[in-house]
Amino acid sequence: MVMTRQAMADPLYQGGELDARDLALISIIQRGLPLCSRPYAELGAQIGMSETEVMQRLLRMQEQDYIKRMGVVVRHHELGYRANAMVVWDVPDTQVNELGHCLGRFEFITLCYQRPRRLPDWPYNLFCMIHGQDRDEVLRYIDFVIKRCALHDIRHEVLFSKRRFKQRGAHYHRAAALSK
């Protein structure tokens, strides 16, 4: 059974807000889909929701952009992408959108966010994450984007990662899950 937009015609699903049932679903899906033949049925069984309702709600959350993507979540480091740098740029406020969009479209850039400056300690307002098989590859990517996005005059720093103390998916609604 593949979900179609027709399945969304139910008036229950027209609103843009998440309700308590969405939050219950989020709280159990964030640790991953079960690896079994009918994973949505299995998830639903844990919270008293039918397979169809689980799928409808997940589809709506994707359409409404709560969910960025559904699929296999890989761990870069274990796959041989040993080098990972957060590159931070001090971009004039009037240029941050333009440069953010320029950086955000490269396939080797896995995150690209505007964040606030914290002066005087922290002058950087544009952050991007670059993964590579080694440091040299990451540095080559940085040179490449400096040319492609004309970042020559933009002050930046490269923060390579060293030890990884913790990495897992976010737990959004633990408290909500427990109370439902």
Binding site: L33, Y66, I67, R69, M70, G71, V74, E78
Partner: peptide
């Protein structure tokens, strides 16, 4: 450890 999970990646700050 090559795959952390099969599942949903949520958009930051849209939930919580």
């Amino acid at each position: 450890g090559v795959v952390s999970r099969v599942g949903a990646v949520f958009k930051p700050n849209r939930i919580g």
